[in-house]
């Protein structure tokens, strides 16, 4: 009974926050709702007995991906108002197409029936005596090693791609120069001021910026 209550609670919050991700006006709010959606999905994983997957979801998606999204949203100066232009115009068409697709998928899933082999696989999927993390690792590094290594290659390609498309050699490579950083005296970087209480903050004296 209590399990069902929790299940419906997590699912409801998940669905609502997923909807908010795409409807929120402020992109930062969208990302925050996305994090909420991930957390609820993780809770559902825990309820299904997949604790390891839940942790991975939180660590990877909330810890890395969503924060990265947040960075991108904040750093890129994208005019979201301009992006929304035409939203009203295409709304009816988009809604129609989406509704038709949804109805079709719903109809098909209503009549979905797994084959005999699937029922067999579902009945025997759990290996006795192994935790889920251990069984995932067991499969990943033996049976699916080939795919696992290829996925690594995929990440290498993504990295090369990002560097090839963005790194500009020559003009002003923004490289870190440790020697120069260490050479800077404190006086160049730090100014100590003692503001008098109640007098407000006086503007700092203009100083040449050390890059």
């Amino acid at each position: 009974m209590i399990e069902q209550i929790f299940f419906y609670m997590f699912s409801a919050v998940l669905l609502v926050s997923a909807c908010m991700v795409i409807t929120a006006r402020n992109p930062v709010h969208s990302v925050l709702f996305l994090i909420l959606a991930f957390l609820n999905a993780a809770a559902l994983f825990v309820m299904a007995g997949a604790a390891f997957l839940a942790m991975v979801l939180v660590i990877v998606y909330v810890g890395a991906v969503a924060v990265l999204f947040l960075f991108v949203v904040m750093m890129l100066d994208v005019d979201f108002i301009a992006l929304r232009e035409g939203f009203q115009k295409f709304l009816p068409l988009g809604l129609t197409v989406g509704f038709v697709l949804m109805a079709e998928i719903g109809l098909s899933l209503a009549g979905f029936e797994a084959s005999g082999t699937m029922r067999l696989a579902a009945a025997t999927h759990r290996v006795a005596g192994l935790s889920d993390a251990a069984s995932i690792g067991d499969l990943l590094y033996t049976r699916y090693l080939y795919v696992f290594e290829l996925a690594g290659l995929l990440l290498v390609i993504a990295m090369i791609g990002a560097i090839v498309l963005t790194l500009t050699e020559g003009a002003r490579p923004r490289r870190q120069d440790l020697a120069r950083q260490h050479d800077r005296p404190i006086a160049d970087t730090l100014t100590l001021v003692k503001p008098v209480i109640g007098a407000g903050i006086a503007p700092l004296p203009a100083r040449e910026d050390v890059p």
């Binding site: 098909s108 009549g111 029936e113 797994a114 082999t117 699937m118």
Partner: peptide, 28 residues
């Protein structure tokens, strides 16, 4: 996968043979 319970081509071929072919999950 939801229909056949396996991602291997051999297993899928087995699941999609005989009377199973016209099932809606497989067609979709």
């Amino acid at each position: 996968y939801g229909f056949a319970g396996t991602t291997g081509f051999a297993g899928i071929a087995r699941a999609f043979s005989g009377d199973n072919t016209a099932m809606i999950g497989s067609t979709f």
